Amino acid sequence: KYAILEDDYPSLNYAIQSRGFAFELIGVHKGNLEEHILKVIKNSKPDVLSLSIVQYISGLKIDLAFIKQLKQDNPNLIIIGDATQYLGTEPFDFIASGFDAVAGSGYKWLMAGFGNGYMMLSGELHSMLYTAARQRPGPKEPMLADKPIVDLYFEPGHQDTLSHGTLSQSVHFYKELNMNNIKEYLNELKDYAYQIFDERGWLLPVVKGSATKSLLINLQVPRETYPLLVEKGVRCFPRGSGIRIGLHLYNDKSDVDRLVTVLDQAL
């Protein structure tokens, strides 16, 4: 049985729902997400918890310290995280995180372009995959004979080495910048933006009340302002009840100020 979050990214939820697996939805719009997760884990005892670290509509971010403690308290619970909207914004230690699997696309915060992604598996989860296939004879061809069974299933055909290389270069770039430096810079920018947005009442209540804040922000402004924002060169997109923006390394406080000026004049 799976526990999944309401309105999470379709590639997470639909993969479970479309295959007929039993699941329970966890509400995310009433605040105290971590408390709701704990309640479901305690009462429904799911085998797997699947969630995005940062929700793609609201920008709500799960408390990573909570995930680590959750795994310690529930060692048999498999925890799967989508890090597409997260990885690349601060240091992340997968081994110590509490997640059994973390996967994502490289085109977002890793700035690695299209056509690539990543997946990290814990040793425990790795050993649970394709257990029946492990008992059967493997391919004998020299190019495949030494590949582990998980590699055979996850890499069944041709690979786009150009896309992989682009992801590799992004990882090298981030290492040169140092993830601690990146976190420090983005936290300062994030705090600056959230204060201004909060003063204007543009934050979702569930995000405003959360102790953890992400760099993906759903501004509660009329969706009709979207064409104007695009016209003014603001990269954004209508999501849910507002307009979603993202702050990253290439932004600074002047970008926040310009966005606010455009919206102040429009509202």
Rank of each mutant, 00 (worst) to 15 (best):
residue 91 P to I: 09
residue 54 V to N: 06
residue 104 G to T: 09
residue 97 S to A: 09
residue 60 L to K: 02
residue 67 I to C: 05
residue 111 M to P: 01
residue 79 I to L: 11
residue 40 V to I: 14
residue 82 D to V: 07
residue 66 F to Q: 03
residue 55 Q to V: 01
residue 56 Y to V: 02
residue 83 A to L: 14
residue 109 W to M: 11
residue 57 I to R: 08
residue 76 N to K: 15
residue 113 G to C: 09
residue 88 G to N: 10
residue 106 G to Q: 03
residue 59 G to Q: 08
residue 95 I to P: 02
residue 52 S to I: 02
residue 103 A to C: 13
residue 41 I to Q: 07
residue 69 Q to A: 14
residue 95 I to K: 07
residue 57 I to N: 10
residue 91 P to V: 08
residue 65 A to Y: 03
residue 64 L to C: 00
residue 46 P to E: 12
residue 85 Q to Y: 14
residue 63 D to E: 08
residue 61 K to V: 05
residue 44 S to F: 13
residue 98 G to K: 07
residue 71 K to C: 08
residue 107 Y to D: 11
residue 42 K to G: 02
residue 44 S to N: 07
residue 64 L to Y: 01
residue 74 N to K: 08
residue 43 N to I: 10
residue 87 L to I: 14
residue 76 N to I: 02
residue 105 S to Y: 14
residue 88 G to F: 11
residue 64 L to K: 06
residue 89 T to K: 05
residue 94 F to A: 08
residue 108 K to C: 06
residue 96 A to K: 14
residue 73 D to G: 01
residue 88 G to Y: 09
residue 80 I to H: 06
residue 58 S to Q: 05
residue 77 L to H: 10
residue 78 I to M: 13
residue 62 I to L: 15
residue 93 D to G: 00
residue 60 L to R: 03
residue 51 L to Y: 08
residue 47 D to P: 00
residue 82 D to Q: 04
residue 43 N to E: 15
residue 82 D to P: 05
residue 89 T to P: 01
residue 37 I to P: 00
residue 89 T to D: 04
residue 83 A to I: 03
residue 113 G to L: 08
residue 77 L to E: 12
residue 49 L to P: 00
residue 41 I to L: 13
residue 62 I to C: 04
residue 96 A to P: 00
residue 67 I to P: 00
residue 113 G to T: 04
residue 107 Y to R: 11
residue 76 N to D: 15
residue 44 S to C: 07
residue 100 D to A: 10
residue 94 F to M: 12
residue 71 K to H: 15
residue 98 G to R: 07
residue 47 D to H: 12
residue 57 I to G: 04
residue 47 D to N: 14
residue 70 L to S: 04
residue 51 L to G: 04
residue 63 D to F: 09
residue 48 V to A: 05
residue 59 G to K: 07
residue 37 I to N: 01
residue 43 N to V: 10
residue 56 Y to E: 14
residue 90 E to P: 01
residue 93 D to F: 06
residue 113 G to V: 03
residue 79 I to Q: 09
residue 86 Y to R: 00
residue 51 L to P: 00
residue 77 L to R: 08
residue 82 D to K: 04
residue 103 A to F: 15
residue 96 A to G: 07
residue 56 Y to N: 13
residue 48 V to F: 13
residue 48 V to T: 12
residue 105 S to E: 07
residue 71 K to Y: 09
residue 49 L to D: 05
residue 47 D to G: 12
residue 89 T to A: 05
residue 47 D to R: 12
residue 76 N to Q: 15
residue 105 S to W: 13
residue 57 I to Y: 12
residue 77 L to W: 13
residue 39 K to Q: 13
residue 41 I to M: 12
residue 111 M to F: 03
residue 114 F to S: 10
residue 92 F to T: 06
residue 82 D to M: 06
residue 63 D to Y: 11
residue 110 L to E: 06
residue 71 K to P: 03
residue 72 Q to R: 12
residue 42 K to D: 15
residue 54 V to R: 06
residue 61 K to R: 15
residue 83 A to P: 00
residue 84 T to G: 11
residue 61 K to L: 15
residue 47 D to S: 13
residue 44 S to M: 09
residue 54 V to C: 09
residue 71 K to M: 11
residue 57 I to M: 12
residue 62 I to N: 03
residue 75 P to L: 14
residue 82 D to C: 07
residue 77 L to Q: 11
residue 84 T to H: 13
residue 68 K to R: 15
residue 37 I to H: 03
residue 111 M to S: 10
residue 68 K to G: 02
residue 64 L to R: 08
residue 96 A to W: 00
